[in-house]
Amino acid sequence: MHTASRLTDVLQPLLRISSHSALADLSGVTFLDSTGLTCLIAAYRTARHTGAGLVLIAPSERVRHMLALTGTDQVLHSYPAVDAVPDGLPDHF
């Protein structure tokens, strides 16, 4: 809740001006509440609107669990590390 606005401040401008993918490193995130989830969903929607992509990198087990519980993992794809992200990201990003 306390850091979601900072994430929004960084992600939204990147996704609004770029048709490239943004990689969000979540390796340091130990807890994801509804505020953080809303931030990620809003970023995903912006990315879809502009043709950009959003990929989550190294989410913790707790974060992955929250994404799975809400079904968000079905639209926000994650990878264990940057080098695990495929060269050609899927079209539905």
Rank of each mutant, 00 (worst) to 15 (best):
T38Q: 15
A52M: 01
I57M: 10
L14T: 13
L23E: 04
G53V: 00
L69F: 06
V29F: 09
T8A: 14
V29R: 14
A68E: 11
Q74V: 11
S60A: 04
Y79S: 09
D83Q: 08
V82Q: 12
I41D: 08
T30Q: 11
G53I: 00
L67M: 12
A58L: 07
T35G: 08
A68I: 09
D9R: 04
T46S: 02
D73G: 11
A47G: 10
I57H: 02
L76T: 00
D87H: 10
Y79G: 07
G36Y: 08
T8R: 12
L54E: 00
I57G: 04
I57Q: 03
L26E: 01
T8Q: 04
G88F: 12
L11S: 04
A4D: 01
V29L: 15
D33Q: 03
L11H: 02
D9L: 15
L23P: 02
V82I: 15
T50N: 09
P80V: 06
A4W: 14
A58W: 01
L67I: 14
I41C: 11
F93Q: 15
L56E: 03
D33A: 08
L26C: 15
R16W: 11
S34N: 05
A58E: 00
T35L: 09
L69Q: 13
D87S: 15
V29T: 08
L7P: 08
G71H: 04
F93C: 11
R6L: 11
A43K: 00
D83V: 11
E61M: 13
S27Y: 00
T70P: 10
V55D: 03
